[in-house]
Structure formats: C-alpha cells, structure tokens
Design a protein around this nucleic acid. Structure first.
Lengths: 121, 121
DNA sequence: TGAATACTGAACCATATGGTTCAATATGGC
DNA sequence: GCCATATTGAACCATATGGTTCAGTATTCA
C-alpha cells in the first residue's frame, strides 16, 4: 500500500476543513497580513486567530515572520501538490469503479433479455 | 467573496483528514466491502469502523446499502470536484502572490550563489 | 519615561473526535 | 427453534478543537 506522508496529509486536510482557515488562505492570497488584521477581518480575538495561523503554519500553508512587534503572515511553501495528487488518484479509482459497474449492469441486462433460463451468478 | 457550500467543504476535508478514512476510500476504489471486512482490514472494532463509514457517508464520499444483515459500502457520488476546484483556485492565488513578490528572484539569486557557473533557469 | 500597540501563553470551557466495551437487534442457515 | 453472524446504539474515555478571557512581554512612539 502506498503510504505517502500520512501525518502530512492529516495536517493539511485538517487545516482545510475549517471555513475560517480557508478564508485566511484566500485573504493571504490577496495580500500578506498581520494577526491583528486577520483577527479583525474574521471577527475573532487575536488569540483565536493566532491558533488558526499556528494550524496553517504547521501544515506548511502559511509562513510567518515577526517584524518588530508585528507578526507578518503570508502564504507558505505548500502548494498542496500531493493533496491534489491524492484526490486525482481517488478520482481515477472512482471512475474505474463506476465504469466497471456500468459494464456489469450492461452485461446483466443483455443476458437477461437474450437468455431467459441462465441463472449463473 | 465566493462562498461555495462551506459546511460541505468542512465535511469533505475533515473526512479526508484521517488516514484510516483515506484508506477506506482507496479500498472501496478496488472493491465494495462490508463493515466487517473494512474493520478487519484496518484492525478496528466494527463500531469504530462504522463511525468512520458514517463520516464518509455524511461527506458524500461513500454510500451504503443494507442487504440482509450486511451493510455494503461503496464509493459515493462525490468526486471531490468542488474540493479540487478550491485547491486549484488556491494554487492560482499562490502563484499570483509569489509572482508579484520577488521570491522567484530570491530563489534565482540563491541558485546563482550556490552554483557558480550556471546562470540560466 | 510612559502610554499605546501587538502579540503570546496559560487557563478555562463546551463540544467534537477516535476509539473502546457491552448489550441489543436482525438475519441466515441448519 | 436455535445458534452464529453482522450490525447497531448507548455509554464511556482520553484527547483535540475552536473559541474565550486575563495577564503578561516586547516594541513603538511621543
């Protein structure tokens, strides 16, 4: 079984599973921001936003740098390549699975109509 | 701000954030399975596996059907299209953001200094 | 120096998650 | 009918999550 880096996937998908954090990523896609700015934009305390940023940072989706008293947040190094690849692979499995089902259904239909007595499973 | 269906994203990304559940999806991509079969494959109690299947089902990634005393699990209708689209959009933001900054220049400079003669690429 | 700003850490809270055990229920086969 | 199989629900447990408040600490600026 292909293993990838399971804990890495855990972290990045979990990071994406929260609407606020997805919002933060979109925001940082437009411009870098401080904790204060993000907290205001998402109507949350500084401490609350800091936790979200920590989660995003641990997932590699955001990097931060403290400049003076301000922590500047920006998009991180992760471009979600592996996550995309995983989903793409899942989609291929999905397609294969349902193509196979379609074929089976089709075959059963043909057998049914062309051969009344054969009960083989 | 584009909204998509936030709670839908929450559910599907959260579903993908667990290694066991990703494994179940891969397994179901190969063949349908009962709760018992999945529980054995992933060394877990029936009840535990049932919970995972519930999570996947709520996220639309798996559908199940009770046939006699066996619950058959198969891949569901969701092909993660919207999730792929969200990630793709994020990747575009990411690219735009870093094209705008001189991070690329930064990288080139580092390459140049660490690799004296090669100036191209 | 001293006040305002920006963040951070600790502690707390309610709820969710990932797992278990145990007891019940429903079904299949003899 | 009886027994084994397959699932399910309730209850429990430990830990994680998403948020808060409050009390610091570090930095900026007048």
């Amino acid at each position: 079984m292909v293993q990838y880096s399971q804990t890495h996937f855990d972290a990045s998908f979990a990071a994406l599973s929260d609407a606020t954090r997805r919002g933060v990523l979109e925001q940082l896609g437009r411009s870098d921001a401080s904790i204060t700015e993000l907290a205001e934009k998402f109507h949350m305390t500084l401490t609350g936003m800091k936790k979200h940023v920590n989660v995003l940072e641990r997932a590699g989706l955001v990097t931060t740098e403290k400049v003076g008293r301000v922590r500047n947040c920006r998009l991180g190094r992760s471009r979600l390549e592996e996550e995309m690849a995983w989903i793409e692979r899942y989609r291929q499995l999905w397609s294969a699975r349902f193509d196979a089902l379609d074929m089976v259904v089709e075959e059963l239909k043909q057998k049914e109509t062309s051969n009344g007595r054969n009960k083989a499973e």
